[in-house]
Amino acid sequence: MCKLICLVVCVWFVTSQAQTDCGNKGSWSRSCGNLDKFNCEARGCCYDETEPNPGRKCVRVEKSPSFSFTATAGPGLSFGGEPGYPGNQFKRGCFPFIRNIKCDRRLNAKTESDCLRWGCCWDEEKKFCHKSLYNIVRLRKDCPPGYINPPGCELAKCRHSPCLNGAVCKDTATGYECECAPGYHRENCGIRQCPSPGKAHLTVYPDKDTWYDDGDVTTFVCDPYHRMFGSAQRVCEKGHWNPVASPACVSLPCPNLRPVSDGGFAPIDFQYLLGEVVNYFCNGGFALSGSSTSIKCIDPGPPSLMGVWEPPEPAGCTLISPTNTACLSFPCLNGGTCLHKPAPPFFECVCTPIATGPTCSIPP
């Protein structure tokens, strides 16, 4: 707390003896006595002819005289108050060690009202107007976290109602804590925020674990093999997302596969989604009709709501000519798979990773 101790001595000078402001009734204070207009104004007071009470016609102006302050250094003397703040308040002090020093040799104050009007100190016992001392006091404009009411800055508690926007306050050993209402967060629940928008099959930029500040813009990107439905951006506005809903990232299904007679495919699933690959095979004595043994489920783009197979499904497995017996000699080595072909050499080897070449005979 800023203590008003006399740490700086200031020299003051009266700049004008006429310090009355009789046009401003709001500044009038104590009565100067039951005086007529001449004697009232002679004492530097204000005479109000509209006042019906004779005892209140002549009043003293509360306004302090104008002083010119000059700080004077002395042994162990410095500014009082909180370090780092400019002197922003003057405090008058009356002290015993200056009770015998006349306020100002130019003044001849005989009454307490005259003495106090010039910022001096009145000794009632001696009926003497003596000098006063002024402190330059530095006052805090802000308090550190957890404290309120500058310049004193007392420990904040729930009785001070620090929590804002409908938050619930709970006293703690070190002060208090606020349980914020939905849409508010941070110090004293004074900042409106939006909750996490969710991340189902989404990547969010920027990615914050909990809360987003008012004005934050989020950008959404779908996981691979997912299509976005909805806006790719949302803005946090006063604790609510605009638009209200996050975009949805959906993995589209591909059409069901036709059964293959005299052969099959793997894997066998109830539903195939974007990115999945299916491999075809034929039974012995049959060959696959089509451009590839593998197909993949891909997204054709809007407006389609289904994936498509690329390349198209094979037509099926056809019976190999009895004269085509190339695979019967097991030409594919190192675990390679032999496929019948209608043209010479009437077979094709599908090699394992451990070999390459037409018959899988060449190490990788």
Rank of each mutant, 00 (worst) to 15 (best):
C332I: 02
G81Q: 05
G175F: 02
K37M: 09
R105D: 14
L164P: 02
G263C: 05
R60Q: 12
G93H: 14
S246F: 01
C349F: 04
A173F: 00
W241H: 08
P150M: 10
K141A: 11
P54I: 09
K110Q: 15
G307E: 03
W241N: 04
P75D: 07
P151F: 11
C349Y: 02
G23V: 00
H240R: 15
F13C: 02
D299R: 01
C32F: 12
F13H: 12
N108K: 13
A42V: 01
D269A: 14
S68F: 11
D214G: 02
A248N: 09
K3E: 13
L333F: 07
A18Q: 14
I148W: 00
Y176M: 06
W122Y: 10
E310A: 11
T318W: 00
K341G: 15
A173Y: 00
E177Y: 03
V244N: 09
P197M: 01
E82I: 13
T50I: 00
F281Y: 14
C222T: 06
C2H: 12
V59W: 00
C40Y: 02
V308C: 01
D114N: 09
S292G: 06
Y147N: 08
C120K: 05
W309Y: 08
H340I: 00
C94Q: 06
F347M: 13
K63E: 14
T70F: 14
E51A: 11
A245P: 02
T203K: 10
L4I: 11
A245F: 06
H130R: 06
E49Y: 01
E313W: 00
E154A: 07
C46F: 02
P195F: 07
A73K: 10
S78C: 08
V11T: 15
G275P: 01
K170E: 14
K238C: 00
E187F: 08
L319F: 00
G263R: 05
C58M: 04
D48C: 04
G335W: 03
P145F: 05
E348A: 13
N279M: 08
G290W: 02
P358W: 02
C351R: 04
G87C: 13
